[in-house]
Amino acid sequence: MTSTTPSSLNLRRKQIILRRQSAYCYEALTASVTAGSKIQSRKRTMPDLIEAINLYKIFATPVGDVHAVNGLSLNVKSGEVFGLLGANGAGKTTTLRMILGLMKPTTGKASVAGFDAATQPEQVKRSVALVSASAGLYQWLSPRELMHYFADLYDVADHAAQQRVELLTKLFDLREFIDRPCSGLSTGQQQRVNLARSLMHDPPVVLMDEPTRGLDIVGSKRIFDFTARLKEMGKAVIFCTHRLEEAQRLCDRFGLMFRGRLQLQGTLTELREKSGRDSITDIFLDLMQENDSTTEESMQPQPVVTVPKREGRSA
C-alpha cells in the first residue's frame, strides 16, 4: 500500500483503504468489548498505520554534520501504543517530525496510513494528531473558537465540526468554560482543551511528544487515561517520553532510542528476554553503559560521505 508513484487513482485507493481500515478498527474495538482475547490474533493481520524504514536525518552545522537519526525503522499497528523512549536529544522529536512530514528525511522513508510522509505530507498530516506538552493555546480565543479554528485548519465541515465539539466537550468535561477565553483557564483545564483540539479531525494516528512533561500527578494520570482511551478507540499511538516507568505501564511495545539509533525494539517480554533485566529502566541503563564504552565518538560531528543532498523544506 505504499506506492512510489502518486497518482489520483492511487490516492483514491488509499483513501478507501484508510476508511476500511478505520471501519475495521471499530469492528475490532466492538469485538474487544465482547471478546477481549480475540483481538490480539486479528491485529496481527492488520496493516501498519505507522511505518518508518531506515530513516536518516543529518543536520549540516558549521562544525560538520550531526546524525540526529541514524537508520531508524519502526512500525505501529492500529490499537497499539508504541513507546519511543530515550534521553533528551536522542532524536525522538526529529523522528516524530519526519513521520509527520514536517521534515524530510535525509534518506529513508516514513509513511502514515499508507501515505508517504515525504511526498504526501498533506494527507499524512490529515491522518495524524500531534499532542505536545509545549503546545500552547490562543489566549484571546475561547475553547470553542479554538476547536473550530482547528476544524478549519483540518478542513472539517461546519456541521461535523459542531458535532465534534459537542462530543469532545462531553468527553473532556469542558462545558463550564467552553466559552471563556483560554487565558483564564487553569493548567489542567488548558491541558484538557489541548487534548480535545488535537482530536478535532478524528485522526487514526496520534503522535505524543513528551505529553507529561511538566505535569503533576493528576495531569499525568489524565494523559494515561487519554492514551488508554485512544488505544481502545483503535488509534495507532507513538508515545515519546524519557520517563521510563510510566511508559512501561502504558505501552504495548517499546523502542529504546540512543544517539539517533533504535537500539532495542519489542514488547516488554521480548526486551526482558533479550536483556535479562526486569524493568525498562534497568534495560535502558545497561544500554547506555554499553554505548558509552563503544560509540563514544558517535555524538561527535562526523564528516558526511554518503548523503546526496542537503535536506529540502517541509511542505
Binding site: R19, S22, Y26, L29, R126, D155, V156, A157, H159, A160, A161, Q163, R164, L167, K170, L171, H201, D202, E232, M233
Partner: peptide
C-alpha cells in the same frame, strides 16, 4: 461515548471535502 465517536466519524469522513 464510543458510539458517539463512531457516528461522528462517518460524518467527519464525508465532510473532508476540500473547501
Amino acid at each position: 461515548d464510543e458510539l458517539n465517536l463512531r457516528q461522528s466519524k462517518s460524518a467527519t469522513q464525508g465532510a473532508l471535502k476540500p473547501r
